[in-house]
Simulated assay, not measured.
Amino acid sequence: MTTPALQARGLVKRYGRVTAIDGADFDLYAGEVLAVVGDNGAGKSSLIKALSGALVPDEGTILLDGEETRFHSPLDARRAGIETVHQTLALAPAMDIAANLFLGRELRRPGPLGGVLRLLDKPAMRRQAQEQLDALGIETVQHIGQIVETLSGGQRQAVAVARAAMFGSRMVIMDEPTAALGVKESRLVLDLIRRIRDRGLPVVLISHDMPQVFELADRIHIHRLGRRAAVVRPDDASMSQVVSLMTGALRIGDPDAPPDLADRPAEISGGGR
């Protein structure tokens, strides 16, 4: 069996009498898009926060490539090669594209200019930023020096995704990446996710958009009541079955339930039907 790139076992997080994560398990394999779906209040946001370092679980273990690890902050996760694209994007609108790609990781000029005077190496950042956009096939951006506040919603999302792909050496987590985007802009982002997956970088996709989930995902992690209810392939399940598993109307083992792929990687075939 292939070792998961990211694995969690028995995660628990309590807030007083409220249990947000209730013994949750998770498996992400190399080269796949894993969609995480669940009803409101299912605990999927808390699960993703635990996996990205924004939340420290009370119990359970997290493993990277089979090695147990513990994140105390999002910075720990970033240092481990896990990048997260949040719904808010966390972009600086008054700065240009290159500056946003290197935000918090700015390159300094060589020698005393960078060491003593701490001057930024803007030509190097713009060159590397352009190379990243070209590698991901982002053609909608006119100039790497364009100010982010002048970009469309889809272009801004593309910049955030490009930054995550640039520094995410192990995986990228995307929280509702097409929320509030139009059809054309959503298509741009979905194509970017495919390109990232095709480069061998696994992607965790949190989404409420079932058609997009079934189009893009290799496997679907269904979260319910703070824990993993099932993992299914889009080819083996219908949207109505996934929704029924989310709400509890259908359970794994029922005659009409799809096969459960929990703890077992599916063949990576590009997702969708």
Rank of each mutant, 00 (worst) to 15 (best):
I144P: 00
F102E: 04
A160D: 01
L89T: 00
A135F: 08
L201F: 02
I206E: 04
M125I: 08
P110D: 13
L181Q: 07
M125F: 08
K184C: 00
T140V: 13
G115W: 15
F214C: 01
E185C: 05
S152K: 03
A99Q: 14
L101C: 02
M95A: 11
P123I: 15
L201I: 15
R187N: 12
Q128F: 10
S152H: 04
E215R: 14
D134Q: 12
M95W: 13
V161S: 05
R109L: 15
L136D: 02
A135L: 12
L113T: 10
S152L: 02
D96H: 02
L188M: 15
S207Y: 08
S152M: 05
Q130C: 02
R108Y: 14
K184F: 08
Q132E: 11
I97D: 00
P177N: 09
R187H: 11
H143E: 14
R156P: 00
D198A: 15
R195F: 04
Q146W: 05
E176Q: 11
R197D: 06
G145N: 14
L205E: 08
A158F: 03
G114L: 13
L201R: 14
G154F: 11
R156V: 06
P211K: 05
A217K: 03
V213L: 06
V204Y: 03
Q87I: 03
S169T: 15
D209K: 12
D96V: 06
L190W: 00
R195T: 14
R163A: 01
A98Y: 04
G114S: 10
M174G: 01
R219C: 00
E139F: 00
P123M: 14
G182A: 04
L216R: 02
I138N: 09
E149I: 10
I220K: 01
L107H: 01
R170C: 07
V141A: 11
V189R: 07
L133W: 11
R163E: 03
F102K: 05
D121Y: 07
Q155W: 12
P202R: 11
A180C: 02
T150A: 14
G200V: 09
R108F: 14
A179H: 09
L117M: 12
R118C: 01
L181I: 06
M125T: 04
R197G: 03
V141S: 00
P93I: 13
L190A: 15
